[in-house]
């Protein structure tokens, strides 16, 4: 009556069967019970059934043995920990109310030519610059200069709205706020590490790698923009 031990899903199935049916009649003659019936006092087993499974333990009977069940249980534990980790990480991402406040509307009519207004958007400064003709001309002139982050001036403002330049006012180097009117290119200059931007906000000199970023925005009317 000796049988090979079940190596794969057999024991799991037996175990489930046993759970479903607390009575002993699941133990078929000739099948080895997963666990000894006498371990549990209340577990009634017909002696014939037990007597019919006189299997000897072989050398591979180390309880540490990594058989299917143990591996599956371990994988499930790791999976559970991994699954729970995501909510705990995601909670640090912007909350729904933060995302909802991510757009601002601004009335441009009060910004005079040659002036710049700084407003706060997503916690950062936003430069809204009403450029003079001179500034625009200087920006266009440099479209094909040796740029670190090549972009034409047209790509940095809305079509037909060359006088309005809207930029995120943080230096692309390490996030300081550049000031207008400094530097060698008539645009912005970052006081922290000396990055020079031109009148289109393009990086021209210094450690910053990129042009000042242009946010997503739309003109709601001639004098009103919505940023974000």
């Amino acid at each position: 009556m000796r049988r090979r031990r079940f190596q794969t899903s057999g024991p799991a199935l037996e175990c489930v069967l046993r759970d479903l049916n607390q009575n002993s009649d699941w133990v078929e003659v000739g099948r080895r019970p997963l666990f000894s019936p006498q371990l549990k006092g209340s577990f009634k087993v017909a002696s014939t059934v037990v007597g019919a499974t006189p299997e000897h333990h072989t050398g591979g009977e180390d309880p540490n043995r990594r058989d299917f069940i143990h591996i599956a249980a371990t994988v499930a534990a790791v999976g559970a920990a991994g699954g729970l980790a995501w909510p705990f990480i995601d909670q640090m991402n912007p909350a729904a109310d933060t995302l909802a406040l991510a757009s601002v509307e601004f009335d441009l009519s009060k910004v005079e030519t040659g002036q710049q207004v700084v407003i706060k958007w997503r916690g950062k400064p936003l430069f809204i610059r009403h450029r003079s003709g001179k500034e625009i001309a200087s920006a266009i002139k440099d479209n094909h200069a040796d740029l670190r982050d090549p972009q034409t001036d047209e790509e940095r403002h809305k079509a037909g709205k060359a006088e309005w330049l809207i930029l995120i006012g943080t230096c692309t180097h390490l996030g300081c706020v550049p000031t207008f009117g400094g530097g060698d290119y008539g645009g912005w200059f970052c006081p922290c590490h000396g990055s020079h931007y031109d009148t289109s906000g393009r990086i021209r000199k210094g450690p910053a790698p990129k042009n000042l970023a242009v946010p997503e925005y739309t003109f709601l009317s001639d004098s009103k923009v919505k940023v974000g």
């Binding site: 666990f35 000894s36 006498q38 007597g51 000897h56």
Partner: peptide
């Protein structure tokens, strides 16, 4: 406890 168990049970492999 196991001494009181059925004879067949005492012979079951787990005892070893």
């Amino acid at each position: 406890h196991s001494a009181n168990a059925p004879v067949g049970a005492a012979a079951s492999p787990e005892k070893r």
